[in-house]
């Protein structure tokens, strides 16, 4: 929701918008939405109806699925006949990612996966502090700053959740 307002490409624009190369991300997104809608519509056919023969659990998701097909197709078709500049959000595309920044994003996801795998085994503190240090270090923070921040954050979280809010965190050999 970056408020850099892209001009809306509502159903309002006429053919005067011009025709140019296809806006590929919109085409793909539209087709994905359509496919999801079709899958939903097919799946809800297996849901049971109400005893009086009226549609029950299938009605609402079925309707949503149908509308997904409709709007997905609108988006796909529109992307094919519209210039790229007209596509909403096109002006808003952030600076391109670099191999380095993609690696960093993978590291962020890696933190979460590693936490899922390790926290039950090692407990919260022994998992979080090293993972935080690694992630900060990867993001270019000087090692001693990273180490200090990692430990401070871990202590802060333990104090806030375990002592203040009385929410249990995963425990390991250290008891925290």
């Amino acid at each position: 929701m970056t408020a850099e307002n892209a001009p809306a490409t509502g159903a309002a624009d006429g053919p005067g918008s011009g025709i140019g190369p296809t806006n590929r991300p919109d085409l793909v997104a539209g087709l994905l939405a359509t496919a999801l809608g079709v899958a939903v519509v097919l799946h809800v056919r297996t849901f049971p109806g109400l005893p009086d023969g009226q549609p029950g659990p299938a009605l609402f998701p079925g309707l949503v699925g149908g509308l997904l097909v409709l709007f997905g197709l609108v988006l796909a078709v529109r992307s094919a006949v519209r210039r790229r500049e007209d596509a909403a959000g096109a002006q808003d595309v952030p600076p391109d990612s670099t191999p380095r920044s993609r690696l960093n994003a993978l590291a962020v996801l890696g933190y979460i996966v590693a936490y899922l795998l390790l926290a039950d085994l090692l407990g919260f503190a022994l998992t979080t502090a090293p993972l935080l240090f690694l992630l900060m270090w990867l993001l270019g923070v000087r090692p001693w700053v990273a180490a200090l921040s990692a430990v401070a954050t871990t202590v802060l979280v333990v104090l806030m959740f375990q002592q203040l809010l009385l929410v249990p965190l995963p425990t390991g050999p250290l008891g925290v």
């Binding site: 929701m1 892209a6 809306a8 509502g10 159903a11 997104a29 939405a33 997904l68 709007f71 988006l75």
Partner: peptide, 10 residues
């Protein structure tokens, strides 16, 4: 919604 209304609907 800001930007495209079709996208807002999806």
């Amino acid at each position: 919604s800001q930007g495209s209304q079709v996208k807002g609907a999806i």
